[in-house]
Simulated scan of single mutants.
Amino acid sequence: MRHGEVDETGEPTDAVLLRAVADHDRQAFEALYRRHAAWLAVRLRYRCADEALVDDIVQETFLSVWRGSARFRAEEAGGVPGWLWRIASRRLIDALRGHGARARLVQALGRSPDRDQPSAEELVLAGVEHGDLAGALARLSPELRAVLQATVLDGLSTREASTLLGIPVGTVKTRAMRARRQLREELT
């Protein structure tokens, strides 16, 4: 292999592996998977306590790479790891949005359905859904709510929220600041 096609350990670079995967090279795909699946699963677990869902998301991410439905562009920020993270985080958000907030919370907490007393987390969620905060959130503009959803509820970084929402990073920061200010005014 030529210089630039191998990393400092002598292994093929991610770009080389992706070109081979595009030609359906199973060994290249397995090498890419071994290189990235573990850290991707760990990072997803910071955002979702459901290990089965995280495992499914990792598999779906790599399946989309294998099928070619996800296309890497060399100019993408973060290189191949950033690209894989964006695919996985979007799939996780889509999966979580498919469930109701209460179902996600119960699933994340592992609460058995036969427990009579709600947990502290469930009480907080009920306050968010039905209390003063819920009203204040409902009064936010859709643009401000979307930024809070992405950065606070979904736990995305400013850059990830920017990519997800299709707006500049500075706009995400400005909207988040405006949303916090508006919530603070309404709740004090």
Score class of each variant (00 low, 15 high):
L183M: 02
G166T: 04
G127P: 03
Y33E: 01
A161Y: 05
A28P: 02
A150V: 01
A70M: 05
V42G: 09
A38V: 13
L105I: 07
Q107T: 14
V172N: 00
Y46D: 13
R34D: 12
Y33G: 07
H24L: 09
V58W: 02
S119H: 10
Q117W: 10
I93L: 09
M1P: 09
R47D: 00
R102C: 08
R71M: 08
R91D: 00
G170I: 07
A77N: 11
T9K: 11
T188G: 13
A176D: 04
R73W: 14
A49K: 13
G135A: 09
G79N: 04
H99W: 12
L63Y: 11
F29C: 02
G4M: 11
R180Y: 13
T174Y: 13
D154G: 06
D14P: 00
G78I: 07
E121P: 11
R43Q: 13
V80Y: 04
L144S: 08
V169G: 05
L105S: 10
T13S: 01
V42C: 09
V128C: 06
T174N: 12
R180G: 09
L140K: 06
H3A: 14
L109R: 14
G155I: 02
S64I: 04
R159K: 12
W85R: 14
A31C: 06
H130I: 06
S89G: 07
L44E: 05
I93E: 02
G110Y: 06
E76S: 14
Q182Y: 12
R26P: 01
F62P: 00
L156M: 09
A28S: 07
V172D: 03
A126W: 15
W66P: 00
S89L: 11
H24V: 08
G127K: 05
E76Q: 14
G131K: 09
V80E: 02
R73Q: 15
I57H: 02
A179Q: 04
